[in-house]
């Protein structure tokens, strides 16, 4: 099973402004599990890439909020998640793009690790 996870940054990841509850270690574990990962944020795309480089995490994409449909078109996966802290800018954009949505505290349990099938 191919899984793709999009992380919002501010209010979602620990490196965000404000900091969120999701650690960069969680992101690394997700990557190590063979999941396609990236960020979808209101931050400049170049700024998103710098954050990932600073934490030695190679991401598959870094996009603006309205570009989740482009991510879905580019990467074929069985399940698409977006994790974010905002109803208007995360949940609504995610659902409109056909992603499943998780709030950051829901994502702490890493529910994607318990999905049936091969995650690579």
């Amino acid at each position: 099973m191919v899984i793709l996870i999009s992380f919002d940054i501010d209010g979602t990841l620990e490196v965000g402004d404000p900091p969120g509850v999701l650690s960069m270690d969680l992101v690394r574990r997700t990557k190590a599990a063979g999941i396609l990962i990236g960020s979808c944020s209101d931050r400049p795309i170049s700024g998103q890439r710098i954050i990932w480089e600073q934490h030695n995490i190679t991401v598959d994409f870094a996009v603006s909020k309205q570009q989740l449909p482009d991510v879905k078109a580019k990467f074929k996966a069985d399940v698409y998640y977006h994790i974010g802290d905002r109803e208007d800018l995360d949940r609504q954009y995610a659902l409109a793009a056909g992603f499943e949505f998780l709030w950051p505290d829901e994502a702490l349990a890493e529910p994607w690790l318990h999905l049936d099938g091969d995650s690579s």
């Binding site: 402004d17 209101d42 931050r43 400049p44 795309i45 170049s46 700024g47 710098i50 996009v63 603006s64 909020k65 309205q66 570009q67």
Partner: peptide
């Protein structure tokens, strides 16, 4: 002071409306 991020042409042109 807080987020020393440059704003490239790519960043600007890909921003949401």
């Amino acid at each position: 002071q807080h987020r020393p991020e440059q704003l490239t042409a790519e960043d600007y042109l890909n921003a949401r409306w």
